[in-house]
Amino acid sequence: MTEYKEWIGIVAIACALLAGVAFGGSYIGTLVVWIAIAAVMASSLRFVLLIGELNFASAAFFGIGAYCTGYIVNHADLPFVLTLALSGGLALVVSIVFGGITLKVKGPYFLLIGFAFTEALRIFYTRMEALGGNSGLVGIFPPAWLDAHYQYFTTVLCFLLILGLLGIERSHLGKIFIAIRDNENVVRSVGNRVFFTKVVCFAIASTVAGLAGSLHAFANNVISPLDFGFMLSIFALAYLKVGGEDSPLGPVMGAALLVCVASYAQSLGGNEHILYGLAIVLSVLFMPKGLAGLADLLRRKKESVA
């Protein structure tokens, strides 16, 4: 029963956001796209957490997707759908190579390598003249036929990706992921290929991050190396932590809440970093299961009273 509650919750939030695009102004529409993309990033981070690893390289794959899109739009005239697919594909290929090397190490080593990879790529972008160097790439617009509906398209696609990740998590493969997190030696002893499965998990999450990056590039029209530093991974972590990492609903709720609050705070002249930092610190210390955990706790209390 609880399995379906999360599906329903995610779809409900998606519908609410779509309604926001339909009835809100252009500002609300932009905000909805940010929320959808942030939710995908947080879900991708959570997906790798299923095998027990914190994937700090997710910002790097987001950047790869965005830059691939930017490059194709500026240098080759390919159809929109193909551009999107190629961006996801590039993230997939890079993530298989990167994961194939780094997933041999675990815990803090994996995390720090992801962190270093993100920074190395950021430096790489600033060095590449073809990628616009320090100033980045401009003029990344969605095609004319989609322009008017781009906000709907992005929101729907983002939520399909999130539901897809949830589907994999609930499948047989997803159960192996969680078993690896709990005890990988047991998984190996019953004949599963642990390393291979880890790379698969990492590659799926990274492809999704790459697609999100591509959508971000089209939505933002402009990308620069500074958008894809390790701070992006920390932001995704903030959404995940505030929402709660145990439930697939968590990253979506966290993204919706934090993006709205940050946008409101910025309009009042507040500092985004302080807000996100405070949100992470407070949720780690006082709300370790996040919003989703809090909702669960309230429900259980109600049930025990009744």
Binding site: L49, L54, G107, P108, L111, M231, I234, L237, A238, K241, N271, E272, H273, I274, L275, Y276, G277, L278, A279, I280, V281, V284, L285, P288
Partner: peptide, 18 residues
Amino acid sequence: MTGSFILSAGLVLLFEGL
């Protein structure tokens, strides 16, 4: 490990902003 790492990441944002 994960929890305290996330805490330290939050502290980075908080301190840098402050």
